[in-house]
Computed example of a mutant assay.
Amino acid sequence: MNIHSTSLDVTVMSDTAEVPGIGFLPVNTFVLHSKQPVVVDTGLSTPDKDFVTELSRVMDPADVEWIWITHPDRDHTGGLWELLEAAPQARLVTTFIGVGIMSTEWDVPLDRVHLLNPGQSLDVGDRRLTGHRPPLYDNPATVGLVDEKTGAYFSSDCFGAPMASADLATSADVRAVDDADRRAAQLLWAAIDSPWVHLVDRAKYDPTVAELRALDPSGIFSTHLPPAIGINGQLVEALVEAPDGPVFVGPDQAALEELLASFEPV
């Protein structure tokens, strides 16, 4: 895992997951260094991950006061339960639906839950964080957030893009990626993660993109894209194009059998 500091009170903890045939998907978590420290998402759930140990490279996990889960997919909740133990005063920020989804697998401590819907705000001591549903998402519990002090925007899965290498996936700045490659990867991710975008009513979808464009964040922090500061226009244009972008069709059984055969000794 790579650790990147930014000028927006945000530390980015960058991990990656290799997706065969697709590339290397960034899987970021974030520490917002507010007066009441906030951890945004908790990484992958694979057995080789130890989120709390990695977090200790950034801060004492016991000092975390808020854990904001942008949605409860397993690439966002990997270290959640260990972090709740390591940070006994921390509250879990999610939605009613988020609690319901997590409750199918875990005993969610309701006395530590803080329910927050899009448009509602949370006071973290020296700033307010406002929930925002991004234009693209893959889970009904998705709530990103805007830091009203710095303008940083945490977009959950929105703006995601598989990278050509693990080094690019965990880089400190998405501008390390060629613009054309980044745009194509964003459109691919939109088709994979939010396939409904090809069915949307433009009259309803476009205003959500316009709202984000008007927000004009100081930085965009996506779970699945290297940190993006200063390129809002290019990133948002990919959202505009997404409904008309290519449809993703994954490999079928014949392709899987061909792949498995390639692993067999000759």
Rank of each mutant, 00 (worst) to 15 (best):
R202W: 12
I22Y: 08
D157M: 04
L115N: 10
W81Q: 07
V177W: 08
Q36A: 12
R128Y: 10
A184M: 01
E18L: 12
L84G: 14
T170P: 02
L215W: 05
P20F: 03
E85K: 09
R127W: 04
L44F: 07
P88V: 04
V197M: 11
V108R: 07
P37G: 01
H224L: 05
S156K: 05
A203T: 12
P135D: 00
G23M: 08
D107R: 10
A254T: 14
T104H: 15
T11G: 06
V19A: 05
A87S: 11
L168P: 08
A169M: 05
P47C: 07
S45N: 07
A255M: 12
A238N: 00
G160L: 07
H33R: 14
F30P: 09
G100N: 09
G98F: 13
E18F: 14
I97C: 10
R175G: 06
A152I: 02
G144I: 00
M102E: 15
K35M: 03
V93E: 11
L239T: 03
L129E: 03
M59N: 02
A17Y: 15
D167I: 06
P88H: 02
T16A: 13
F24E: 06
E85N: 12
D9H: 15
G131E: 03
V200F: 11
D41Q: 08
P134G: 00
T53C: 01
A166S: 04
V200T: 15
G23F: 09
T95F: 13
A161D: 02
I69Q: 08
H71C: 06
A164Y: 11
R202F: 14
D147E: 00
A180R: 13
I3A: 00
G119H: 08
F154C: 06
Q36R: 11
P162H: 03
A161N: 00
L168F: 06
T6E: 06
H114W: 12
D75I: 14
L44D: 12
S155N: 02
D157R: 04
L84Y: 15
W106Q: 07
S103Y: 14
A255W: 10
M1K: 00
M1H: 01
A161F: 02
L129M: 09
R175Y: 05
P195W: 04
P162Y: 06
M163L: 03
I229H: 04
R182S: 02
V99N: 14
D123H: 14
K149Y: 05
A190Q: 00
G144V: 03
H114E: 15
E241Q: 02
D123V: 10
A62F: 04
A141S: 13
F51T: 04
L44V: 13
D167N: 09
P251D: 11
G100A: 09
E148P: 04
E54I: 00
P37T: 03
I231T: 12
Y137W: 14
S222R: 07
A255N: 10
V10P: 04
A238L: 03
R112N: 04
A86E: 13
I229P: 03
V52H: 01
R127L: 05
I231W: 09
T53Y: 02
L239M: 01
M59R: 10
E18Y: 15
S7V: 06
S156V: 07
A210W: 10
E82T: 15
D173T: 01
R182E: 02
A255F: 06
N28I: 04
L168K: 12
N232C: 05
A161S: 01
V93C: 13
E258T: 05
N139Q: 12
V266P: 15
V113S: 12
V38I: 07
I3P: 00
S165Y: 13
G119S: 12
